[in-house]
Write a protein that binds this DNA or RNA. Structure first.
Lengths: 231, 231
DNA sequence: ATCGAATGTTGATTAATATCAATATTAATT
DNA sequence: AATTAATATTGATATTAATCAACATTCGAT
């Protein structure tokens, strides 16, 4: 973990959290003076499940995975974390502990801002508090959809959904280099890595996608969407 | 659905939402003047998935189930709703639609309070907004634990967890009348009703619980907890 | 009291998915 | 470049849980 200043200020930050727009000049200055930058290499851990939650973390660059550490190696990736997003585990404002771990997938630049500051801003700025409510609600909706997906879709549907997520939300392209290993893709869709391989192969043989190691190309978007919805 | 006033005022309400304690006298009066009571019979629907979310709902008496309506009859109960709790679907503050349905399990008395009022209070009272943040976070934590349970536990573990929830949180007794049908218990633990029957029978034959239709008695709490944790 | 619908139960069968084992491939490190 | 370690792939097998079918029971509504 390195600590060097890359972002000159919150105002100029290209990956600033949307909710910071609700802050006054003084308030944004407060944030700016109390933030700490850190850089993580792939695989390094930003947040450890169970540890006390002292700071809100934002990615300014890179990608990370939020995952639940289960018994032995049954890790379960619950979210891919992208820039401009507040990283705040479920329940943090209640019990001030992290319910999941977060690890860097790529090289990641981060800003740490103490929850003391965040809490102070919530109490003194209702519009900021409202923005926090919206953010938490959006996160709840994502978690809810994840739950629906896991309980109602079979393996092919979950893989299709994951591929569409990367294509639509992350890389915004039908061709992309999925950063996750097959094991991680399994952790993300809650299945064994062998099953991931088999289903990708199946989708490939049906000309719905083309796979070449980590490179994935979506050939038949319609069909993939259908599988995601109905699989 | 009946509409008669049972609760004289929010101040006297025995099932008032904790966060209302953060309101001033004027503010609580505003809530009180803008609330509508309604009574639902078992099976009646309080909230329909997909409908616009106009009001926050609180139970003053009774129990309800929040569930996702899937394809055909694959309903998935995501939460048992108890008094004193704000019913606000995940994502409501964002897209103002309900992501789940809520139906009464018993006769249920409710208060409806328009989100216009709630939103106004969030904007003018930072402490109330903070309470809302805590509430949403607590809900997120519950959803998170549900996800962990579904992804990491096998059927016996999930049933054990559900029984402990009813014993510990709802009825606060080792003997209770589980209000859910076997089908609903399956919807709650994400398994077929036949599997529910089989696992309850198995637990019964091992003298861990005693089942007599809807009546359930926990005989060996230690073992049940072990199954819930490690199953 | 009677009928029909929902609920509960049981066993047999099938489908979905994980696990195991073996091997190939790629990446990382000396 | 050689050696290890991680990752990917494939087939065979085992496990888990759903589905199907048959029937018993309970519950509501005539």
């Amino acid at each position: 973990m390195l600590s060097q200043r890359i972002i000159s200020s919150c105002e100029n930050c290209p990956a600033s959290w949307e909710n910071f727009k609700n802050l006054s000049e003084d308030e944004i200055k407060l944030v700016d003076e109390n933030r700490y930058e850190a850089t993580f290499k792939p695989g390094e851990i930003l947040i450890k499940q169970g540890s006390p939650a002292a700071s809100a973390i934002f990615l300014s660059q890179g990608m990370a995975k939020a995952y639940i550490e289960g018994h032995e190696r049954s890790n379960n990736i619950i979210e891919i974390v992208l820039p401009s997003n507040l990283i705040i585990g479920p329940g943090v404002p209640v019990d001030e502990r992290y319910a999941y771990s977060v690890a860097a997938l790529t090289t990641v630049h981060t800003c740490f801002i103490s929850f003391k500051i965040i809490n102070q801003l919530i109490r003194q700025n209702a519009e900021f508090a409202n923005g926090m409510i919206k953010d938490l609600s959006a996160k709840a909706l994502v978690a809810h959809k994840k739950l629906v997906s896991l309980t109602q879709k079979k393996m092919a549907g979950r893989i299709a959904e994951a591929l569409l997520f990367f294509s639509d939300e992350v890389f915004k392209s039908p061709v992309f280099d999925i950063i996750l290993t097959r094991q991680e893709l399994g952790d993300y869709t809650n299945m064994a890595k062998e099953s991931v391989v088999r289903i990708l192969k199946e989708l490939d043989s049906q000309d719905i996608i083309k796979t070449d190691c980590s490179k994935i190309e979506i050939l038949n978007l319609e069909k993939l969407r259908w599988i995601s919805e109905n699989g």
